[in-house]
């Protein structure tokens, strides 16, 4: 299911919500300043399959 998640631009500080498709492969850009420093503001970072985790 598509649900909206929040993002924060690390360049200009703009916060926004965007739908996130499951398994999507999308380059994100700040709608305000066009930066690609877009931080996905998840509550807890999810452990991914690479085995690299958040500690």
């Amino acid at each position: 299911m598509t649900k909206k998640e929040s993002f924060r631009c690390m360049m200009c500080g703009y916060e926004f919500e965007e739908p996130v498709e499951p398994g999507e492969d999308k380059e994100r850009t700040c709608p305000m300043c066009r930066s690609n420093s877009i931080r996905h503001m998840k509550k807890r970072a999810v452990k991914d399959k690479t085995g690299e985790s958040d500690e």
Partner: peptide
């Protein structure tokens, strides 16, 4: 401050 790390394409 995480802003000190930037990412650009």
């Amino acid at each position: 401050r995480p802003e000190r790390l930037q990412l650009e394409w």
